[in-house]
Simulated scan of single mutants.
Amino acid sequence: MEKIFKSRVALLYIMSISMVFSFSAWMSLLNNFVIEAASFDGSQIGILQSLREIPGFLAFTVVLVIIFVAQQRLAYISMMMLGVGVLLTGFYPSALGLYITTVIMSIGFHYLETLNQSLALQWLSKEKAPIILGKITAAKSFTSLVVFVLIFIMMKFYSVEYKYVYAFFGGITLIVGIISWMAFEHFKDDVVQEKKITLKKEYWLFYVLTFFAGARRQIFIVFAGFLLVEKFGVDVHNMVALLFINSVLNMYFAPKIGRFIVKFGERNTLRFEYLGLMLVFVSYAFVENLYVAYFLFVIDHILFSMAIALKTYFQKIADPKDIASASAVSFTINHIAAVFLPALLGIVWLYSTSLVFIIGAAIALMSFSLSFLIPRHPEQGFETTLKVF
């Protein structure tokens, strides 16, 4: 047990699992809870979701906070904030109450995810990072499965109220955060991190690919599931079953994707991801068969797991002292699309559902084209094959 508390990798697992444990519960219950307990209408859920994304957009402020609080300690505080936000959610079933608890939860979640990525890229060697990140992704998928099963048992067989379900999952994350703070060794930074917000021209390709990744993520999250429900009438049980299948497949494929990156490199992995996503989005635009739509939804989810390659590409090209700052900035860039794209494409959806996915395919095509600028062996000083600046 003592060895666990001296292991950086163990801490990365614990941070990732605790984050998914409470956030998955929050997300899976949200729509039912706000309607049944808080009588939300469409505008209120829209406001809540916008509030949820704002801390992601402001993730760059992590850099300002680590001037005063060490990254590892800030990760514990973020874990506890996430836990508190989820724990309190069920006790305040009103618009104002849910807005406040959502912001608390979201600050904790987005700070923790940003710090988790930053610490992983600092602590893991470049050789082992893809494999360990793949295993962590698999662990997160397994955690989601556990959450779905626990919620089903608690609410189906024991009729546990929403507030106690939220309190259970949020409380566990809160407790894990406290125990981690007290029990884990405080690991010294191998390289002192820059504590200012900067956009470095050397990382321009990483920034652009990160922005496009955020845009594609929004199209998948907002519209892929909506297509299944609106066009094919898929009910909530089948949607949960699909998410369950995605989690199982991620557990299997994520570690293999890590090994694939080690063997074939980031450039080839990202090309494969972007080409696959381009084909999936075009297929979404014209799909008429329910089972084909199911298949596309699952493949879509697996392909997004290959985004590990974008993180390890950055790890290889980054100056070690820039990792914390650039991770925070990239997280903000990834969320820029979340601010405007769902609303914009929601209007497009009213006129043509196919056009939304054609736009997604075009974004994937641009990413695919840019992937040819990634060197076969990227490293600091050789970030791209094209010196634009």
Score class of each variant (00 low, 15 high):
residue 352 S to H: 09
residue 359 I to Q: 14
residue 367 S to G: 01
residue 380 Q to P: 00
residue 368 F to K: 00
residue 369 S to Y: 12
residue 372 F to E: 06
residue 345 L to N: 11
residue 384 T to S: 11
residue 374 I to K: 03
residue 352 S to G: 11
residue 366 M to V: 13
residue 354 S to I: 09
residue 344 L to Y: 12
residue 370 L to F: 07
residue 307 A to E: 09
residue 344 L to S: 11
residue 316 K to Y: 08
residue 330 S to T: 07
residue 358 I to L: 14
residue 368 F to Q: 01
residue 313 Y to N: 07
residue 352 S to Y: 09
residue 344 L to I: 15
residue 350 L to A: 12
residue 376 R to D: 00
residue 320 P to D: 04
residue 306 M to S: 06
residue 341 L to P: 11
residue 382 F to V: 09
residue 365 L to S: 14
residue 314 F to S: 02
residue 315 Q to R: 10
residue 372 F to K: 05
residue 312 T to M: 04
residue 362 A to D: 12
residue 382 F to C: 07
residue 379 E to R: 10
residue 331 F to M: 15
residue 311 K to E: 08
residue 370 L to I: 04
residue 316 K to R: 11
residue 378 P to H: 04
residue 327 S to P: 10
residue 352 S to I: 08
residue 306 M to C: 06
residue 376 R to Q: 00
residue 366 M to Q: 09
residue 343 A to T: 15
residue 337 A to G: 09
residue 341 L to K: 08
residue 383 E to M: 05
residue 313 Y to A: 02
residue 359 I to R: 13
residue 355 L to C: 12
residue 383 E to C: 08
residue 367 S to V: 03
residue 318 A to P: 02
residue 326 A to P: 09
residue 319 D to G: 09
residue 316 K to F: 07
residue 367 S to D: 07
residue 361 A to R: 11
residue 349 W to R: 08
residue 378 P to V: 04
residue 346 G to L: 07
residue 343 A to S: 15
residue 333 I to C: 01
residue 364 A to Q: 05
residue 332 T to D: 05
residue 323 I to N: 02
residue 341 L to G: 09
residue 330 S to Y: 00
residue 363 I to T: 01
residue 317 I to L: 05
residue 370 L to Y: 00
residue 335 H to N: 13
residue 323 I to S: 04
residue 337 A to P: 07
residue 353 T to L: 14
residue 337 A to N: 07
residue 321 K to C: 15
residue 306 M to N: 03
residue 374 I to S: 06
residue 353 T to K: 15
residue 331 F to K: 13
residue 370 L to C: 02
residue 325 S to E: 06
residue 380 Q to T: 07
residue 340 F to C: 13
residue 351 Y to I: 08
residue 321 K to L: 14
residue 373 L to C: 00
residue 373 L to T: 01
residue 338 A to E: 11
residue 371 S to G: 04
residue 375 P to L: 05
